[in-house]
Write a protein that binds this DNA or RNA. Structure first.
Lengths: 194, 194, 194, 194
DNA sequence: TATGAATGAGACTTCATTCAT
DNA sequence: CATGAATGAAGTCTCATTCAT
């Protein structure tokens, strides 16, 4: 009967939000500027999200979850820690190449103490890394003395930092390659081994 | 005498700014709230900084610089990369224990693409890490194939992430000890060696 | 048949409007909330009324008119002022019991200087009360010196205030009875007599 | 040291608020329009009141209280109900002449079910009228059978309605005089007597 | 006919900044 | 030198209204 919801609009809003938050920061990304970039009316945003905060929060949560699911997927597909890490890192790097803003967005909010994840999220993330650590100890690829705290300082910290500096074009303007993924995997594996 | 009063005011403003930014984010830290916490008048702030942005930027720059100077200092004092890293990491951990807000502040802004450092800063930081990398290669503690890009993904990324997760109390509520510094140094050294 | 469906929709819109305006005030009663309560689409409302303002105005006008017609009806049915007043007040009280919202709605808008009646309405109301005043003077139930201004301050002000305070449950939660109507009639009659 | 608060500004805001609310209704009286009429900046309003609602509420409460205090004052000054009522009504009429908006403002909000008084206010008002009723029964000016519900439907309903219709210029454009106050007092006294 | 997606003007509110004192 | 009253641009959000379907 009535006009049907234009799904591309919702997608445009999401992408515009990420780009504006990355470019201008959370505070600098005004709802108006997001709506303008997404080519929708200011008010339209509020038909899908109750507030600006909820909009950003929801995007953040879904990206973090995507991330976490990728870890599980890789754990179920590959047997050695090295293979798991490489394939995960490679996937992340590809995603970063395709949509650098998305990578910056996650990185930015993960380090924003103001933007805490929901309790649920906060618990499930360490859990997935703990599983990975156990796996590494099992295969003897990880020193038995490594704690979860040390583990996460290596993974995913190293690949995130590497991708982040590339996106910021601090040392290079090149795209991330599978060779980069290999190098980063090696750094992680060496750091952790006995 | 009047001068000294001034100095404590300035100090109070700086600390209040850091605390408010860390607690409420850049946008949530209003000039009024900073002035109130520092127990100075709103307008007084503008005698020292031309704008809120300049205030935060200046604090950020001076902290980053402190950081950089510490690297130089350690490089001139110690001879092996391991010693340099350990003493630097230990110093950073002590600073984090003393003033967690300060550590969170640096970490937060370093990952905020909005708060780009001045060109000057942006150049001098990689430079100081490049010197460190050269040193490591000289002493054979670092594999000759390691690029500056890989190096910075390990150091300072690993210690920063470790300190950051401690401050966020993700895995532990304990203070950072020199034992922590040792563990983190080992991770870095292992990641980089040939 | 289609017509009758229409009619119940229109009726639902009218009742929903009254209830929302009374509950939330004119500003708080959004078109959407009215449509939702009436179980019609937002846009459907605009097939019957050109604007929200017109919708409320029209309901107000029709209720005021209903009121006025009741006065005429009672004047044609009963001979003494006391009988007329009693039967009118009793009718109003019954209506208030059946549909308190309706009573509150009229009362609210009558005291809202924003919602001025149409010129037409404004003239016909005093006219009907003037006829009533003349009748009272004729039967000697009303002092010859009473002006129309004094008369309206007694009737319908007293019964309206009485019903209103009951609806607001200021002094009592009971329904309005014919005994209440008698008491109120007496107050009016005594106020006006010579 | 700093500029001192301009008290006239606060007064201008209060008067502008009353005038705008009376003219345009609560919803129609935008903060901007109030600020403009008061000749202050939009934001200035929020240095004195936390919200538009609080601003209007506070004015309403203080006027209602003024009203209530006037009743007490008259009760302590005069001995017969008739004297008390006359002097109160006269005072109200004078106030209405001086500042018709103020009178309209009170009347409008008193009949707005959306704008409930604080519980405290709601209790103290009937209480003051109850004292008045007791006084009237004591002096035998009021029939022993009159309830507080009937009493308030007469007083202050009659004088309010009379003043209100005058302010709306329904029957007359003249100012309210002490002769008007006498007439209205007589209506009340007659309605209540045994 | 009836719907409800979409709009955008405008509402309320905040806050960096200025400047009279 | 220091204050904090005052400003007003800009932000978030609501909602009456339109119109494609």
């Amino acid at each position: 009967m009535a006009k049907s919801i234009d799904e591309t609009k919702l997608e445009r809003i999401k992408q515009a939000t990420i780009e504006m938050v990355v470019t201008k920061g959370y505070g600098g990304a005004s709802v108006s500027s997001i709506a303008k970039r997404a080519q929708v009316a200011d008010g339209y945003l509020y038909r899908h999200f109750p507030s600006k905060q909820a909009l950003v929060q929801s995007l953040y949560a879904s990206h973090i979850d995507e991330f976490r699911q990728l870890v599980y997927e890789m754990m179920n597909t590959y047997n050695t820690l090295e293979e798991i890490l490489f394939n995960f890192i490679n996937a992340i790097f590809e995603l970063t190449n395709e949509n650098p803003s998305k990578a910056m967005f996650i990185n930015m909010l993960m380090n924003d103490y103001t933007f805490l994840m929901s309790k649920d999220m906060r618990l499930r993330i360490p859990e997935s890394f703990e599983k990975l650590l156990d796996k590494g100890k099992e295969t003897k690829e990880v020193d038995a003395g490594i704690s979860i705290e040390e583990f996460t300082a290596v993974f995913p910290a190293i690949p995130i930092e590497y991708a982040s500096s590339r996106v910021k074009r601090i040392f290079s303007d090149e795209k991330l390659t599978s060779d980069d993924a290999h190098k980063v995997t090696t750094l992680c594996v060496k750091a952790l081994k006995g």
